[in-house]
């Protein structure tokens, strides 16, 4: 199985360090959650992994190999991504969008094989969008579209799955289904999440970014602490242990937000 390594990753955009010397290992079949406040560099780090951005320092390695030395098509067969680009320009049908997940595997305009069409069907069923197969993607709701895009990523048959805010637009049922699917997928997963409770439930390890730097890393129980919430997220909250699953859960109210130092625009 495939492991993912962010090896001293740095990204400087217009002179500002957005990600600084980020070292993070995602072991094979692990789900690692990347959390942190807005602008902490989560998305930038992910963009380097799915190759929308070339790191200015360090490297992203797949089983030790530097991604920047791999052809795009080759890395696309190993790494699939759910980006924050929700909208397509054109009104493809759901099944057409899902089928595009095979693009890195097929040559040119070659038609999909029976196995690949079955793969698409199963991915759609898995994400509960099979009934939408012939609908146009532009007429879907945000949550439906998000599930279609996850199905497309699954059809890519990746070993590593990178997801940027996958629970955006999803209702609670689908948030839980998606994250439990990720956990049970056997894929190496790097995912950014805003909901710390879901992150603590779904991830094997959590990595916390603040101002482009890794400030905490470990199992959720070690990472999600009242101190971290205060210092990194600017929230005075209580952390309790989930009575059934044993993972840390954050309780907060509207008085929880504090003013964050160094985060004043």
């Amino acid at each position: 199985m495939t492991s993912l390594l962010l090896d001293g990753l740095s990204v400087t955009i217009d002179g500002a360090a957005v990600v600084e010397d980020l070292a993070l290992a995602v072991e094979a079949r692990q789900v690692v959650g990347l959390i942190g406040p807005n602008g902490s560099g989560k998305t930038t780090a992910l963009r380097c992994v799915y190759r929308a951005l070339r790191p200015t320092g360090g490297a992203v390695r797949i089983d030790g190999k530097d991604l920047s030395h791999m052809p795009l098509r080759d890395s696309a067969r190993v790494i699939a991504a759910l980006t924050q680009e929700g909208r397509a320009d054109l009104d493809f049908t759901v099944e057409e969008v899902v089928a595009l997940g095979r693009a890195p595997h097929v040559r040119g305009n070659q038609a999909l094989s029976a196995r690949e069409r079955e793969l698409c069907r199963r991915a759609m069923a898995r994400m509960e969008v099979l009934h939408l197969a012939s609908r146009g993607v532009l007429s879907l709701s945000g949550g439906e579209r998000q599930r279609v895009l996850v199905a497309r990523a699954l059809v890519q048959e990746p070993q590593v799955l990178v997801l940027d805010e996958p629970t955006n637009h999803l209702d609670l049922h689908h948030q839980i289904r998606l994250l439990s699917m990720l956990k049970g997928s056997g894929l190496t997963v790097l995912v950014t999440l805003h909901d710390l409770n879901l992150a603590a439930s779904a991830c094997d390890r959590l990595a916390v970014l603040s101002h482009g730097r890794l400030v905490a890393y470990g199992p959720p129980a070690d990472v999600v602490t009242e101190e971290l919430l205060r210092e990194v997220f600017g929230v005075e909250a209580s952390v309790v242990t989930h009575p059934l699953t044993g993972v840390p859960q954050v309780l907060y109210d509207l008085g929880s937000a504090t003013t964050m130092e160094g985060n004043v625009a």
Partner: peptide, 18 residues
């Protein structure tokens, strides 16, 4: 097919090897 992929957005296109 590459044009189809391009219509999904530039970031997604790159992640699909285009």
């Amino acid at each position: 097919r590459s044009l189809d992929v391009l219509a999904l957005g530039d970031e997604t296109s790159v992640s699909l090897g285009v």
